[in-house]
Write a protein that binds this DNA or RNA. Structure first.
Lengths: 194, 194
DNA sequence: CATGAAGTGGACCGCTGGGTCCATAAAGAG
DNA sequence: CTCTTTATGGACCCAGCGGTCCACTTCATG
């Protein structure tokens, strides 16, 4: 399947259109017809660019969204070198998810394609990457003596990742970022030794 | 709709059968036929006892499962009066979710009925209750001077709830309780002031 | 300009799954 | 014992959705 420039553009349009749809108000179940409608394409095209059908398409969207998750936290996530930076990162995370509201594209995706091996791989890669960034930040603060060296940086980083994950999940059903903020603040306080 | 004793028994059998199915290996999408098969009932009965159809049934199952979540943490959750008790509770939570494995009945449920107002209400009630128990435990430890009084008990309790939630979600896709344990330990260390 | 490959549109198919309906069997109530 | 109410079984309906197929168009290349 050799893709021309035009072909690649169409393929990308399908992915991004699907992503837009999933970020919309009522993404309960994304059907191929929904995606077809919003992207202005035809059934033929979808199966032309995603021979694996719906699963392959949704997986591509998941990869696209996973990338956005980390991108939206930059540049803060990559430069956790001072308490002020941690504060900025925290605010960015809260703002991002508050804007996203009750709707979690990756969450919707996972509920539709979560069982497949590919899905676990996408999520796993995202979480690992995320954790590595946070761990890196902690280690840097330990190097400058601002965080006590007795803390296990990787483990606390994992706690951050899980905490955010859970905070977002609560947000999805309650509509409030209160739990998310509480978790981030509690863990940050723990880093500070407060 | 007056229910006889027999009728109530059947209704309950349907709920518990559905719950068993959702705890099974491949609960991706619970269909009425799956539930019908596992509970040894007929379509007629399902709609007789749950006139609201699938949604009403799944909501009943969700209420049933939500109750189990807290029950499975007892008696530890209700008696967080010493560090040893916190330890036991932590172990109970980890054990419960490790046993549950990649499968989260409430998670599956939410992905099928999550958009409805009833679902948010069930989850909301569960989380509020859960948080209240933990907050109560923190307050008791504060009363005995084992936890510094400067901590906002309710907020930290919320962090626990979100952290567990997230840890379980990671477990669902990774199969490992590592994140869950890391979160619980980090927050407990925070309580201890370590 | 010819020719084959890639891109596009949409009719069509078959199955799955929620929901309806009705006929029949138990079970109380008088 | 009858008559109403509740319980049960299962055939049937039909809309939605993923997926197939093929005709047609556009485009690159020699």
């Amino acid at each position: 399947m050799a893709l021309t420039t035009k072909g690649q553009a169409t393929r990308q349009r399908i992915i991004e259109g699907a992503a837009v749809y999933l970020r919309g108000d009522d993404p309960g179940e994304a059907t191929l017809d929904d995606i077809r409608a919003i992207t202005g394409t035809s059934k033929g095209q979808i199966f032309h660019y995603f021979p694996g059908g719906k699963e392959e398409l949704l997986l591509a969207v998941a990869r696209y969204e996973a990338r956005r998750v980390l991108d939206d936290q930059q540049p803060h996530l990559g430069a956790l070198t001072s308490w002020a930076a941690w504060e900025r990162w925290r605010d960015a995370v809260v703002a991002r998810y508050r804007a996203q509201g009750r709707n979690c594209p990756l969450g919707s995706l996972m509920s539709q394609v979560g069982g497949t091996p590919g899905a676990a791989e996408v999520i796993g890669a995202l979480l690992t990457n995320w954790r590595a960034h946070i761990r890196h930040g902690i280690e840097r603060m330990q190097a400058t003596g601002e965080i006590r060296p007795s803390l296990d940086a990787d483990r606390v980083a994992a706690a951050f990742v899980a905490g955010i994950q859970g905070g977002v999940q609560v947000l999805r059903s309650s509509g409030s970022t209160w739990h998310l903020e509480a978790t981030l603040d509690a863990l940050t306080d723990h880093l500070r030794g407060v």
